[in-house]
Design a protein around this nucleic acid. Sequence first.
RNA 1: GGGCGUUUAGCUCAGUUGGCUAGAGCGCUUCCCUUACAAGGAAGAAGUCGGGGGUUCGAGUCCCUCAACGCCCACCA
Length: 851
Amino acid sequence: MGRRRYPDYVTQIPDKPVPDGLEPKWAERWEAEGTYRFDRERARPEIFSIDTPPPTVSGELHLGHIFSYTHTDAIARYQRMKGLAVFYPIGFDDNGLPTERRVQNYYGVRCDPTLPHDPGFTPPEQPFDPPELVSKRNFIELCERLTLEDEAVFTNLFRTLGLSVDWSINYRTIDQHARQVAQRAFLRNLGRGEAYTAEAPVLWDIDFRTAVAQAELEDREERSALHRIDFHLQDGSPITIETTRPELIVSCVALVAHPDDDRYRSLVGTTAASPLFGVEVPVVTHDLAAPDKGTGIAQICTFGDTTDVVWWRDLDLPTRAALQRDGRLVSEVPEWITTDGGRAAFTELAGKTAKQARRRMVELLAESGDLRGDPEPITHVVKFYEKGDRPLEIVTSRQWYIHNGGRDPALREDLLLRGKEIRWIPDFMRVRYEHWVNGLTGDWLISRQRYLGVPIPVWYAVGADGDTDYDHPIVPSESDLPIDPATSPAPGYEESQRGRPGGFVADPDVMDTWATSSLTPQIAAGWEDDPDLFARVFPMDLRPQAHDIIRTWLFATITRSHFEHDSVPWSNAAISGWIVDPDRKKMSKSKGNVVTPMALLEQYGSDAVRYWAASGRPGADTAFDEAQMKVGRRLVIKVLNASRFALGLGEGAAGDVTEALDRSMLAGLAAVVEEATSAFDGFDYARALDRTESAFWAWCDDYLELVKGRAYGDGPGAGSAHRALRSALSVFLRLLAPLLPFATEEVWSWWQQGSIHRSSWPAAAEFAGLTGDLAVLDAASWVLGEIRKAKSDAKLSMRTPVESVEVRAPDERVAALELARDDLSHAGGVERLEMKIDGESSVGVVLAATA
RNA sequence: GGGCGUUUAGCUCAGUUGGCUAGAGCGCUUCCCUUACAAGGAAGAAGUCGGGGGUUCGAGUCCCUCAACGCCCACCA
């Protein structure tokens, strides 16, 4: 690295450096100079590749993003300074339901795919209720428009934060390339038998009208009520069940008790008639029926909850679905209700929402005398789609799945082994992964009945009889990807044959967004499109992400990589914690405690906010704490001022650190370098910051004060001081550069050429021949502290002269102090310094003012 | 019901293989306009390291147990 001569650079040091305004200045310079551009010519061992999380474009970035992205950036900057070419892409996840929901709320619209495209459409100025219905194409256009706006805001925030991503490696999960990768990977899965389609009960969100996957579930407490309701045995006697879903009695296909339950054993094999509807259902047994729950005998509906699905599957029961995908009961009387009374009763419920039907059903049951007592209010836990507002229902539908080990012990074992191949930071996060894999109950449901997403790239032949052949999907050639089967005809067919007997139909679904984002390494690294790049960066070195999406993003990425590449997607997974408010609650919009990141960056400066973020250990949930940002800002100011001071003293001649105090300081610094390096090697940016920061403050408080007098002068020791100050400053700046990129770059520019972020990480070799005995600075700091204490106790200025100091200490310490005698005397304002060898250490101070 | 994590000064947190007379910052108190820094500096007070047991010469650190909090999972009629 080049260095300018003293007279040139010193003029560039501002008289009063301030931390404000550094962000735009340096963000622009870094971009213009390509400071963080990936060098793809480097060989794999010289590359560090990062599978950066593409933030979901469904609103604003929040503090959690600032927090975890700062961690990754610190690692990236460290690796870059270590000499590696850092592959650090950025993407946006703007595909899927979260984006649709954002668009719906933002513009006040809903997609109605039956509407024709309106070329002159403009969204409502103000969202109103009810929402305006728009065509699918208009809806997608709105998604495109809003995501681009959101992404521009995200980009601005990330640049202001100082992320050292390579902005030229940019992707969006709805762009053509991502679609191509997602479809190609899907077709490969299909070709190898890892993807399949099946008609089965699925968890269904009645508002979004789509199936959802196990990984997207969330439990929520709901107020409900237990109803005791009589079915009727053949002899006319009642048999009471307990249920929270009386409106689903119409879908009842059996009553179930435990095989060992004596109360019901005699009934097994007989039938019971449902109340009101008079539908005869068998009494059956199953191990899952709990004798101690309710009356010990339960109705099995198709389907009220996941237990119903298990019973239905295990006992081979019929399907009597009455709840539609919009959450309402069917409007026609189901054919399995055959009695006139039953038909009349159902008419009362037809077309109602589940909630309305429940209320009416209870009234009807009360009238008929089948309701025993009053419903008992309870609170119970119900499955929700994590982004949904109403409880999930279960409906039967045709969906696409990818194997994930949920129904295949051998695959499960393979995926667990993949988990063991990865280094987890912190290590216990591996347990969460294993726990999730071991708890899977079924394959990964990837199809969604939505609009904004990557289409499932298949068609189905329609027979001459008009029946669709779902068992033999027609697939496109990989060279035709990306493709939309809704607009392109199936290979070998004409568009005119769409939807006709003897023709074809397109699969109507899109893939869930995780089915695309599980391929971020492949998307970013040019899988199949750029084999040279792919070979250089894949498997990647690091996947940084938060712990709440281990079950989704992390797991799915491992699964796809396992199938496609027979390898792990990355060697390290660094899992960040969450930001919680000071009450330890997760911060969320609904609690109204969300702070906008940009306001904080502007108020405290990006380095200060990064300082706060870096104080949270890897994996640890961290409190939002503005006080930490103030401390960070203070550190930034200190760096600027101390640098100005150290650089303003002079340059010194090369290679002449002669004074014991200076060599002692550098020896201490060498140890700090070692600590920070090993911390960063373990991805522990927090420890690296902690060690560096305390060393830096101590350096300012003690060493700078001790060396000041000598450095101001032009005596024989001045050159040593200047040289040591500059060496130390260079090291401190570089140690702090990954964490405080703006301030350190600013100072670097005062006296060095090139970016500090392209300079080399401090190494022990830099100190070769420059270090001395640690004890010298230690001892001098100790005595200086005692002198300060004496002055402070006497409530006197630190400038107060000291008549005499008498130090008593063991001989080694006295010998060390002798080596710093002049510096110490000057720093303390001591006129007479006496030292005596003693077993006990003590410092006697006689202040001039009190003498 | 199972699992994981957390519990150290008023607050936010360090404390790496057991050696701590337990540290830092914020806040608080006192003092200091000192020529790098008053968006600063110096000094100080403040903790039975969640409770209880155990291992050990020695435990904040290891083992057992209990509790609180957070998160994840579970077949939630």
